[in-house]
Simulated scan of single mutants.
Amino acid sequence: MQKLTNNQIAWRAAQDIADGSYVNLGIGFPEKIAQYQPPGREAIFHTENGILDFGESPAPGDEDWDLINAGKRAVTLRPGASFFHHADSFAMVRGGHLDLAVLGAYEVAETGDLANWSTGPKGVPAVGGAMDLVHGARRVAVITDHVTKDGRPKLLRRCTLPLTGVACVTRVYTSLAVIDIENARFVLREKLPALSLDELQSLTGAELLVPGPVADLVVPEL
């Protein structure tokens, strides 16, 4: 089955970030979004360990390991970047000063509930700052594969894993579609052109509402 790569999902999510937005990118996969900002548009990226306005990852061999994000990955700085104590960083989050948080997910419910940590042996060992982010940021989006590695839906009627937040997600960018969450329902906005509605529904664990024309999900080769 054709699907978008992680880089392509990150590119698609980056296209919707408004110019001048203050944005937190979750650990791992969401960090890729920083590489794909559209020309002429700027987002100011925030990290929980105390950096505002970091840029793309440095080239291999050019890392400065005094400059890392919350996921312990090396980052670069943009002109005017600032550093502060992590307590101040969380005050920014909890004070509602972030326009957007983009996180990964194990599961997303049609109600907007998010589960992005797990108590299992291979899961993220603790919820960390994500619980603050999903309730402090003005808007929360998720980027994720549409299904698990064994083909089970990640978009469900109700989450089965421990919740990170309740009714917090408003848009999901997956490897197959772009889906909004409105009035506790999944609303389909874009899908891969080669994928039929029936095929997409069979890979989704809750009903997809289709209120109007569905745009083609088209991204560049990356």
Rank of each mutant, 00 (worst) to 15 (best):
V75Y: 03
V75W: 04
T76H: 00
T76E: 03
T76S: 02
L77Q: 06
L77G: 03
L77T: 05
R78P: 06
P79W: 08
G80V: 04
G80I: 07
G80W: 04
A81K: 09
S82F: 13
S82V: 14
F83P: 04
F83L: 15
F84D: 01
H85V: 13
H85N: 15
A87W: 10
A87M: 12
A87G: 10
D88R: 02
S89A: 15
F90I: 14
F90P: 03
A91E: 11
A91D: 08
A91N: 11
V93E: 02
R94T: 07
R94Y: 08
G95W: 07
H97R: 13
H97F: 04
L98F: 00
L98K: 00
L98C: 07
L98S: 01
L98Q: 08
L100F: 06
V102I: 04
L103E: 01
G104S: 07
G104Y: 01
G104A: 02
G104Q: 00
A105K: 08
E107V: 08
E107S: 05
V108Q: 08
A109L: 05
E110F: 12
E110M: 10
E110C: 13
T111R: 05
G112H: 02
G112M: 06
L114I: 06
L114D: 00
N116L: 04
W117G: 02
W117L: 11
W117N: 06
S118T: 07
S118I: 08
S118Y: 06
T119M: 03
T119C: 03
G120N: 11
G120C: 02
P121H: 12
K122W: 11
K122N: 15
K122A: 10
G123C: 07
G123E: 06
P125I: 12
P125S: 10
P125W: 11
G128T: 12
G128S: 09
G128H: 08
G129N: 04
G129Y: 00
A130S: 01
A130C: 01
M131R: 14
M131E: 09
M131F: 13
D132H: 01
D132M: 00
L133W: 05
L133P: 08
V134M: 09
H135M: 11
H135R: 13
A137V: 14
A137M: 14
A137H: 15
R138E: 14
R138Y: 12
R138C: 15
R138D: 14
R139K: 15
V140A: 05
V140W: 00
